[in-house]
């Protein structure tokens, strides 16, 4: 039987860059439609247009962390390092997107709610999720042994992911300013097309980033797990010393 704890295969760079290119193209189209074609919203005016990046970022942040959770489970079950590389990539991209999500939310909140931040269930959950996964990235930086690092970050990812719904329900009992989820029935078609285009754009961008980051993590793991270089021959060492 093959040793599961062998260095992971390194995925090629093409797929990641192709996905990011496709995502960037779709983001240009979706943002053009959202900024110049879609009509203004009757209550918020043009401020609402940040929705075309904010909502897709929110959906895909959850997807990134869900993928990280799946990778953590797969690593603990199979013990293959390719899942550790994927976990590292998904957590890092997810943290970046959760940070962007908080930033976009604040930019939207100031003109509509009058404050940069509100202790609303969804904002609080996102902030807690951000810090919980930042902790996992920090844990990875402080552990040198690849096996321990992979196992511990998989365990921490599972615990953090299981905690998100509990945080959500705990803060939900407070009064909320954030609107409830919209559905295609409650959103005008003029708003829906740019929103969906950007949702796929962010999805492709995120998938591309995760693919490229997985490659970097796999390369680093291969370097860490490579056998040490042989000792230089004594003659050569003496030559070097001279």
């Amino acid at each position: 039987m093959a040793d599961p704890f062998r260095p992971p295969p390194v995925p090629g760079p093409r797929l990641g860059f192709a996905l990011m290119g496709l995502g960037a193209l779709l983001l240009c189209i979706g943002s053009y439609l959202g900024l110049f074609v879609a009509p203004s919203e009757s209550y918020m005016g043009d401020v609402y247009r940040i929705m075309y990046v904010h909502v897709p970022t929110a959906w895909n942040t959850m997807l990134a962390f869900t993928f990280a959770f799946g990778a953590a489970l797969a690593f603990l079950i199979k013990g293959e390092f390719k899942w550790d590389a994927r976990l590292e990539a998904a957590v890092e991209v997810g943290v970046m997107m959760a940070g962007l999500l908080c930033l976009q939310g604040s930019i939207w909140a100031k003109p509509t709610w009058g404050v940069w931040w509100d202790w609303d269930p969804r904002l609080t959950t996102t902030a807690v999720m951000f810090f919980a996964f930042v902790g996992i990235l920090a844990l990875r930086r402080f552990v040198e042994d690849p096996v321990k690092r992979a196992t511990w970050s998989a365990v921490a990812t599972i615990v953090a992911y299981a905690d998100v719904p509990i945080v959500y329900f705990s803060v939900r009992w407070w009064n909320s300013l954030h609107q409830m989820q919209s559905s295609p029935e409650t959103v005008s078609r003029a708003f829906l097309i740019p929103l969906r285009t950007n949702a796929f754009a962010v999805l492709f961008l995120m998938a591309g980033l995760i693919t490229v980051r997985t490659r970097i993590a796999a390369l680093r793991l291969r370097q860490e797990m490579a056998p040490p270089l042989p000792e230089p021959a004594s003659g050569l060492a003496a030559e070097g010393a001279r």
């Binding site: 609080t124 807690v128 999720m129 810090f131 919980a132 930042v134 902790g135 996992i136 920090a138 844990l139 402080f142 921490a156 615990v159 953090a160 905690d163 509990i166 945080v167 329900f169 705990s170 803060v171």
Partner: peptide
């Protein structure tokens, strides 16, 4: 590391 991992988790 310990508070960094634990504090967000025990928010509920």
């Amino acid at each position: 590391l310990l508070p960094l991992l634990l504090f967000p988790l025990v928010v509920p």
